[in-house]
Design a protein around this nucleic acid. Structure first.
Lengths: 156, 156
DNA sequence: CGTGAATCTTAGCCATGGCTTATTTTATGA
DNA sequence: TCATAAAATAAGCCATGGCTAAGATTCACG
């Protein structure tokens, strides 16, 4: 029985490979989600999403932003005429809403467990893409618990 | 005052850009950390780390694994002779230890808040790279709290 | 001890997502 | 209106991290 000679690998190769595969999948969607979320924010706060603002807020050069926007357009998340601002398609808007919802849950969860706001802002940006639906639901439950604790009398 | 015409962008462009930059930095280290952690696990459980096992557990082809291992070697995390197994350098071992420690904290934190083990296994794989030290410390505190709750009398 | 299977490497492909430099287009204001 | 500044695009670079197909090496066993 070789498997007992030293216990360290708890997972089977398959389940471990599946976990990594899942992470890779998440990565593929990350940029897309971050961009549509940001574009939606820009539209709501500034009235339109300009490439220059996207680039600034992503912290990358305009050409880099432009290339990714082109991919988003190719994949049906945004539309934009040359030299004009960027619009979300229905598909893009839907994804943006979903992403922001997740982002908010993660952010509020971190606050609820005592993470300082500035740190929670930073961390939630990275974490949001890697939280499963099941874990997200638990996050929500805990947010609610904390809310109930601090304001016990708000039934209905 | 343009900034009040619609509130949605809570963060300044700079801090938002910094958060994304931080995520990109984390991504750069992700593969490295996952590999050294896995290699360390393989060495401890099987006695050595073979490329074929790394590839299997990462869920990728051998040539892909080989290419990444070459990068890790270039960057001083591992050593390996052609057609021989893979060893961690001191630098690699140190990183592996740190990574597993983080991974464990995230994993046990998820368990502590009620995430099922199989989900916690999957999620912790993706989350570990995006949790700041500050948040990680809070995770540890909560793990300890839950432990105290379920076993109140273990002072010393 | 030699051969076939397993393992590993090489070569070459692709997409993503960064970058710079240079050019084109648009917008602004004197 | 027209010159200049700002914004966007184009072209071309690089690294990462996937892949397949094909070749080299090692290992194990008959």
């Amino acid at each position: 029985m070789k498997s007992t000679e030293n216990e360290r690998l708890l997972q089977t190769p398959d389940s471990q490979a599946a976990a990594f595969e899942r992470v890779r999948q998440a990565h593929q969607m990350e940029a897309t989600e971050d961009y549509v979320e940001l574009i939606d924010d820009l539209i709501h706060s500034l009235g339109e999403a300009r490439l220059v603002d996207v680039a600034e807020r992503m912290g990358i050069s305009q050409p880099s932003a432009s290339k990714t926007i082109a991919r988003l357009q190719r994949d049906g998340f945004v539309t934009s005429e040359p030299y004009r601002s960027i619009f979300l398609t229905e598909k893009g808007k839907t994804l943006a809403d979903r992403s922001r919802a997740r982002h908010d849950v993660v952010f509020r969860f971190l606050l609820a467990i005592g993470v300082p706001e500035s740190v929670a802002e930073q961390d939630s940006e990275g974490l949001e893409h890697h939280v499963s639906d099941e874990t997200l639901a638990i996050f929500e439950r805990i947010i609610q618990q904390k809310k109930d604790e601090s304001a016990p009398d708000e039934s209905s």
